[in-house]
Amino acid sequence: MIPESWYLALSAVLFTIGVVGVVIRRNPLVIFMSIELALNAANLALVAFGQRTGSPDGQALVFFVMAVAAAEVAVGLAIIVAIFRVRQRLSVDELSMMRW
């Protein structure tokens, strides 16, 4: 049996990689994929926690996270495509229009 802390440690590592990816990359698509990475790490931790009690509640929660992530990806990619249509470039450094 694999100890629960192994799963949680892996989840922490993947989440950190996702956060670092969001910070260091300039391409909004890669930033989006890094967010998916972090979401998946959180899902893994949820399932690992759910295994402790033996009830499937944690897995139901992960199911909802997946549904919300699907909606988020659809809307986010549509926004990126719309921005690209207007500006013809794709770098988050140039998207400072809505900053104070």
């Binding site: 698509l29 990619l77 495509v81 794709l90 770098s91």
Partner: peptide
């Protein structure tokens, strides 16, 4: 589903031109 959407968006948005 989601990764197909991603790959599609990458193809549409001309990869490799931004970084």
């Amino acid at each position: 589903a989601i990764m197909v959407l991603f790959v599609f968006a990458i193809m549409v948005l001309i990869p490799g031109k931004e970084e």
